[in-house]
Simulated assay, not measured.
Amino acid sequence: MVSSEIIGQSAIRPNIVQLDDIDRILLRELVKDARIPNNALATRAGIAPSTCLARVRALRDAGVITGFHTAVDPNKLGLMTAALVALRIRPQARSRMVGIARELSKLPNVLSSFLMGGDRDIILHVVCTSPAELRDFVSDELSAHPDIANTQTDLVFEHIANPGS
Rank of each mutant, 00 (worst) to 15 (best):
A82Q: 14
D73G: 07
F137P: 11
L111C: 11
Q152W: 00
R24Y: 01
T51V: 15
F114Q: 14
R88F: 02
R13M: 03
G99Q: 03
S139P: 05
P108C: 03
A11R: 12
D154W: 00
D20H: 07
P146Q: 06
M97G: 05
E158M: 00
L87W: 06
D140V: 08
N15L: 10
G63H: 12
I22T: 08
S112D: 10
G117S: 14
N150Q: 08
T129Q: 13
D21R: 05
L104M: 03
A149K: 07
L142I: 06
P108F: 02
V17F: 06
L30K: 09
I7E: 01
S10K: 13
N162H: 11
S50L: 04
R60A: 01
V17L: 05
I36D: 07
T51E: 09
P163D: 09
R13L: 03
P91N: 09
N39G: 00
A40V: 01
A48F: 08
A149T: 02
E133Q: 13
L115H: 03
E133P: 09
E5V: 04
S139G: 07
C52A: 05
A132P: 02
D23L: 09
P146V: 00
I148Y: 11
I148W: 08
V56C: 03
P146K: 05
H145F: 02
L104A: 02
R13Q: 10
I25S: 15
A101I: 00
T153N: 05
P49Q: 06
L104H: 04
G78C: 06
R60H: 02
I122V: 11
A58S: 10
S50T: 08
D23C: 12
T70Y: 13
L41K: 10
I6V: 13
R135A: 12
A34W: 13
D121K: 11
S113W: 06
L134A: 14
D61G: 09
S112L: 05
G78I: 04
A83K: 14
L84Y: 10
M80L: 14
P37L: 03
L115V: 09
A71E: 02
G118D: 15
M97K: 06
L27D: 14
S113K: 07
L104W: 04
R88M: 09
Q18N: 06
L30C: 10
V2N: 08
P91I: 00
G67D: 07
S139I: 01
R90E: 06
I89S: 09
A83P: 13
N15P: 00
Q9M: 04
G117E: 03
C128S: 15
D136V: 01
V64W: 06
S105M: 03
A144N: 15
D61S: 12
E133R: 11
S143V: 00
H125R: 09
A101Y: 04
V85D: 03
A45P: 00
I12C: 09
T66I: 15
L79P: 10
F68T: 14
G118N: 14
E133S: 15
D20L: 04
I148D: 12
I89A: 15
A34K: 13
R44Q: 08
I22D: 01
A40M: 02
R13P: 01
I7S: 04
I6N: 14
P163L: 06
V64F: 11
I160M: 08
L77S: 11
R102W: 00
E5N: 05
A93F: 15
G67A: 09
A149F: 06
I16A: 15
